[in-house]
Every structure is written in structure tokens, then in C-alpha cells.
Design a protein around this nucleic acid. Structure first.
Length: 495
RNA sequence: GGUGCCGUGGCCGAGCGGUUAGGCAGAGGUCUGCAAAACCUCGUACAGCAGUUCGAAUCUGCUCGGCACCUCCA
């Protein structure tokens, strides 16, 4: 069964076929690093992490080249009128240099990404490392007649670009976001920039004034690159003129992605991207979450409160193209679901042996497991429908719980379930079942064994007061005891 | 004004013409010394109105409500 992806270009699901059948080339818009990660970022990067993992499942570990940029140069609000450079503004607030700000928040970003168990991209280009290339591309665009210098800045000439002959498969300006230039009431909400020929023209290179900290020398004087340019330059540097998938937030469809397409196609004479994937926003009480709205919830705080896997699971339980309603209780609820999962898998691995954790075989030989896996795969193939995929996996969880409760000795079947959950939950969905356990190693195991034995003695002599005292005290310390037929299990309470 | 999207049971969230989505929470039960965990049972939800259809949460129209983009933002 083929993988289908919703392509923003066609506004429909399309079968996915990479240009190179052995290598999927994928680029995702990374963050501008001037603040800590919020839940909106988490939805974006967890969603695409899962996309990437599913592609790796289908095309192999080496079958995906995943590039994410870091925007470490600030950009003004709008093209060419007064505004604040986000990074520089933050630098002023913190009394640090813009470079320190970018480095600090980038590190914070990757820390959170690791906590969320997202794989590192294969390439992580930084805008400031590609200034030469951005200047070069700007020169080329001028040479091609689709850009012009004006008062030390350079603008992309949308009109000239539209007049140009387009090669087969190239996207006209406005083709991604379904906009017509003449419909945009430019000039109403932003003041027309007199440096531009037309309001829809966008900056490739901006003249810097003296107070601007981040600036570079160019053929047009001191300045800094326009926002859209870095993605065009860095994506083609690693992925070629035409590549398979470009991911990003729905709010960047226009103008950012539209501009990327125009400038890339103009300079390369080739189609830019074949599949555009856009994820939806996180809302807070029906409203978009955003830094500028002051309602953004910090990921570090949330991880400390409910655990990273609760957050990841919360995100995976909705579809990437749907808006997600932020609700602290809903995240806690997701955490409870995750704990149920972890309980089942922990018990399974106690039965079949932990050395089998990564063993992935035997699914096909067990019809009931295969059925779950096939449904899971079909859901993932259907535009990465993780909520439906997870729904099917929970069928498997219930089945397995029954087997475990009945003390099943069917090793082949149990191992098949282990394979199913290893692949589906751990490898594809990126759930980490060891993440928040923190059981404290061998010493803790020995100590707990001792305590559990003492308590067992008490229970045997029907000294339930002592037994309960031990259990209650451990509970206060964050340790849960569960008495079963074959003895007592212990674990850490979550969060 | 232009371009799109959405309104599902207590909460989150799938669904895209006809069979239980799923998770969480809640109620009852089984098991247990008591718990916990697990298992079993339980909720007949789809903003409103009108239409198409044998049949609509799912298609059409209207109404109401909400959101996003057109300005930096995941």
C-alpha cells in the first residue's frame, strides 16, 4: 500500500514517490532562536519527527536525509519599514550580544528536543553560516532580472518573475497559498515601502544602519539577509534544486514559503519542492498560541510538571494538520494513557526478558499481532494519521493485557507483541518508556528487594498494619508497590 | 475586502454516506487481607434550520458561533 501525503500544492492527498527511490530528501523550517521552546514548537517538531521516523521505517535508516535550519539572525517586522529585530531586541532585554542569545536559545531548543525524544536532524544549517551563499544567490537573481537594488537593499521583483517563462512543473507565485497578488490589499496594514517597485516585492538583502549589530559586507554595502532567503539557500545546498518534502507551519505558507518557491525557482530554473506539508497551530481557549500573544506555554516547565512523554503523546494523539487545543488537563490525561502503555510493556518485558527489548521479529507469524500492525501501518500511510494509528495500537494493548493477566506462556505471541510495540511505539512514534522511570539502578533494586521481602514476611503473619505502613511510606517517597500473584512489583510514580 | 479552516459525548480527539474510533475522567463488577494494576460492563455525542438520499456527524444551502493567513511568529 502506498504512502499518501496531503500536499498543500494540490490541496489533496497524493501518493508519495521520492525523486530518488532510495533517499527521501526533506527540509523543515526550524526555529528562530530568541526564546525558549513553547508547545507550538513542540507540536511542529514532534509531528515532523514522527513523519521522518515513519519514512525511515519505510525507506530504511539511511533512506531519509532530514535537514532543519536554525534561524540565528533576527529579522525585522515586515519588509522595510520600522520594526524590531527579534534577536537583537531579546539581546537588549538580556543585556547580551545577539550571538550569545542565539547560541543560548539554540542549546535550550536541542535540550528540549532531546527530552521529547526527537531525533537530531541529519544536517542543521545556520543562517549566519550561509551569508556568502545568500549574497551570491541575490546576485544571481539580479543577473536574471528578477531582483533589483534600491538604496542599499535588494528586493525580489514579483512582477518580473511572473512574466518569466516557467519550466515544466514550476509553481507560479501564489500557487502554494492560493493567492492572487491583486487581491492582497497591500499598503493598508503596512505602509508602502517607497524602496519597492511593488508592495508584493520582498527583501532579499536589507541595508543595515549603524546600530544594527548583526551585519555583513555585501556588494550593496553593509546589510543582512532577508528572511526567506536562508531556507532557499540552505535547502538546495544539502538537498538539491528540487527535493521531496518541505515542512513548516501553516502560518508560513504565505509569505514565507511562497517567497522561497519564487526565488528558488527563479535562480535554479527548476521546480523547488514536490510535497509541501503544513502543520496546524496549537490554540489556547480557541485562540492561536503565540509568543506575541503572551499565551505561549513553556516546554521546559511543562516537561517538569507532566513529563516529556506525556507531552509527546498528547501531540501524537492529534493529527498534525488539525489545530490542537492546549489544555493542561488534557496533557495530564495523555500522560495517564502513556503510563498505562508503559505498565503493559514493562510487564511484558519482565515476562519475556529485557534482552529482547530491541528484537523485532515474528509479527507476520502471529495473525492477531499482524492485524494490529497492518492497521497501524495503514493509518500511518494515510497522511501520518497518528491518532487513528494509536487507536489501533491500544487494541493491541488490551489484547496483550489479557494475555499477561492469563499468564500466557505463548512465547512466540508475546515476542511478536514486543516487536509490534518496539517498532510502533518506540521507533515510529518515538515514545521512550524508560524516560521518566528513573528507578535508580542496581542498588535501588537490591534495596527494594529487601523491603519487599520484609513486607512479604509481615503479610504472611497477617501483620497488615506493618505491610500498609511500608507501602504508604514508599508511596510518599514516590515508589508504588503492586501485589500480584507472583510477588510484588515496584515502580516509580510518574511526575 | 481577499484566501482558507473549524464547531463531535465531562475533557482531549478520530471520522469524510450505512458497522463500537481511541485515550482520559466517571459508575458498577471480577481479582486482592486491603490497595494498586489488569480485566468485564455502562455513555446512543456530532452548533441550529432546511434540503439531497432507502440511509448523513459525514453531501448541498442558509443561519449562528469561532479561528487562521493576507505584518514577525511553529
Amino acid at each position: 500500500m502506498p504512502l499518501t501525503i496531503y500536499n498543500t500544492l494540490s490541496r489533496s492527498k497524493e501518493e508519495f514517490h521520492p525523486i530518488d527511490p532510495d533517499l527521501v530528501r526533506m527540509y523543515v523550517c526550524g526555529p528562530t532562536v530568541y526564546g525558549h521552546m513553547h508547545i507550538g514548537h513542540a507540536k511542529s517538531y514532534v509531528s515532523f519527527d514522527i513523519v521522518r521516523r515513519w519514512l525511515m521505517h519505510r525507506y530504511g535508516q539511511e533512506g531519509v536525509l532530514y535537514v532543519m535550519n536554525i534561524t540565528d539572525v533576527g529579522h525585522l517586522v515586515g519588509d522595510g519599514e520600522e520594526g524590531e529585530d527579534k534577536v537583537e531586541a531579546q539581546a537588549r532585554r538580556e543585556n547580551r550580544s545577539p550571538y550569545e542569545i542565539a547560541a543560548y536559545y539554540e542549546e535550550s531548543f536541542w535540550d528540549d528536543m532531546k527530552d521529547l525524544n526527537s531525533l537530531m536532524p541529519d544536517r542543521i544549517p545556520h543562517a549566519t553560516d550561509f551569508i556568502r551563499q545568500q549574497i551570491k544567490m541575490t546576485e544571481e537573481l539580479i543577473a536574471k532580472g528578477v531582483a533589483y537594488e534600491s538604496n542599499g537593499s535588494v528586493y525580489f521583483d514579483v512582477n518580473a518573475y511572473q512574466q518569466q517563462e516557467k519550466a515544466e512543473g514550476m509553481i507560479p507565485y501564489g500557487g502554494l497559498s492560493n493567492r492572487k497578488v491583486e487581491d492582497q490589499t497591500g499598503g493598508e496594514r503596512i505602509e508602502a515601502n517607497p524602496e519597492k517597485k511593488n508592495p508584493q516585492d520582498f527583501a532579499l538583502w536589507k541595508r543595515a544602519d549603524e546600530i544594527h549589530f548583526m551585519q555583513w559586507y555585501s556588494p550593496w554595502g553593509w546589510g543582512y539577509p532577508g528572511w526567506h532567503l536562508e531556507c532557499s539557500v540552505m535547502s538546495s545546498f544539502y538537498l538539491g534544486k528540487t527535493f521531496d518534502i518541505h515542512g513548516g507551519g501553516i502560518e508560513n505558507q504565505f509569505p514565507h514559503h511562497e517567497c522561497e518557491i519564487a526565488q528558488s525557482q527563479a535562480v535554479n530554473d527548476a521546480p523547488f519542492v514536490r510535497y509541501w506539508m503544513h502543520h496546524n497551530m496549537v490554540n489556547v481557549s480557541g485562540q492561536k498560541m503565540g509568543k506575541s500573544l503572551g499565551n505561549a506555554s513553556n516546554v521546559k516547565e511543562l516537561i517538569a510538571e507532566v513529563g516529556a512523554m506525556a507531552l509527546r503523546f498528547f501531540i501524537a494523539q492529534s493529527h498534525y494538520r488539525s489545530p490542537l487545543e492546549y489544555d493542561p488537563d488534557a496533557i495530564v490525561a495523555a500522560g495517564s494513557g502513556f503510563e498505562r502503555l508503559r505498565g503493559t510493556i514493562t510487564r511484558l518485558r519482565e515476562v519475556i526478558g529485557s534482552d529482547l527489548e530491541t528484537r523485532v521479529a515474528g509479527i507476520d507469524a502471529n495473525p492477531e499481532v499482524k492485524e494490529v500492525f497492518d492497521k497501524f501501518s495503514a493509518a500511518m500511510d494515510d497522511d501520518f494519521n497518528t491518532p487513528v494509528a494509536i487507536g489501533y495500537l491500544f487494541e493491541g494493548v488490551s489484547n496483550l493485557n489479557k494475555l499477561l493477566a492469563a499468564n500466557s506462556q505463548d512465547r512466540s505471541l508475546l515476542e511478536a507483541y514486543n516487536s509490534l510495540f518496539t517498532i510502533a511505539f518506540e521507533q515510529v512514534l518515538g515514545m521512550d518508556f524508560s524516560a521518566e522511570d528513573g528507578r535508580g539502578g542496581a542498588l535501588a533494586d537490591d534495596l527494594m528487594r529487601l523491603i519487599i521481602d520484609l513486607r512479604a514476611n509481615a503479610r504472611e503473619t497477617k501483620d497488615f498494619a506493618t505491610a500498609d505502613q511500608i507501602r504508604d511510606a514508599l508511596k510518599d517517597a514516590g515508589v508504588v508497590l503492586e501485589d500480584g500473584k507472583d510477588g510484588t512489583r515496584w515502580g516509580m510514580t510518574s511526575s
